[in-house]
Simulated scan of single mutants.
Amino acid sequence: MATSRRVSRVAELIKREVSQMLVNGIKDDRVGTGMVSVTDVDVSGDLQHAKIFVSIYGTEEAKAETMAGLRSATGYVRSELGARVRLRRTPEVIFIEDNSIERGTKVLTLLNQLRQERTNTPEEDEEFVSE
């Protein structure tokens, strides 16, 4: 079992290398349909599995196509990681779509709408009080 410090270092290294692969390495056209960025990497304690969370900007169709391209490129990504990162065993790679940025944007939009409603409401209340 690796130490938590080593696991976090390996996760950061995998994140950096996969991000570079998304820019230069993966030749699948489906990956280029949506703007893709690696948001997080979760590596298991024994360094055997790596969940790579990706954020994809675009339509639902582009997101599905991009995820299909990423899933088909897992073998390439794993072999490239094996060449770039010096580990005894290269971890199994799983791509997972990360929707947290979209959820955060929705929450911020709702909060802004509530703020707008609250700033508009006191003026209306004052009109009712003064009559």
Rank of each mutant, 00 (worst) to 15 (best):
F128G: 00
V93M: 07
F53Q: 03
Q113W: 06
V10N: 05
K106W: 10
L111F: 08
V93L: 01
L87N: 09
E60R: 06
G82T: 12
E102Y: 14
A11D: 07
I101Y: 10
E117I: 01
V31C: 09
V41A: 04
D40Q: 15
T59M: 08
R115C: 00
R6E: 14
D29E: 14
E92F: 08
D125W: 02
Y76F: 15
V36G: 01
K27A: 10
E131N: 06
L114M: 10
I96L: 07
T74Q: 13
T33W: 03
R78Q: 15
R5D: 10
V38M: 04
M21Y: 08
G75C: 12
G32L: 09
S4I: 09
A50L: 14
E80H: 14
K27E: 14
V93G: 04
H49L: 13
L70A: 06
V85A: 05
S72F: 08
K106P: 00
R118V: 03
D28G: 05
L47A: 04
I96C: 05
A73K: 05
D40V: 06
N99D: 11
T66V: 07
A50Y: 14
V10E: 11
T119Y: 04
T3S: 15
R16W: 02
K106M: 08
R5L: 11
G104E: 11
G82Q: 12
E126D: 09
F128L: 12
G32S: 11
K51Y: 13
E131V: 10
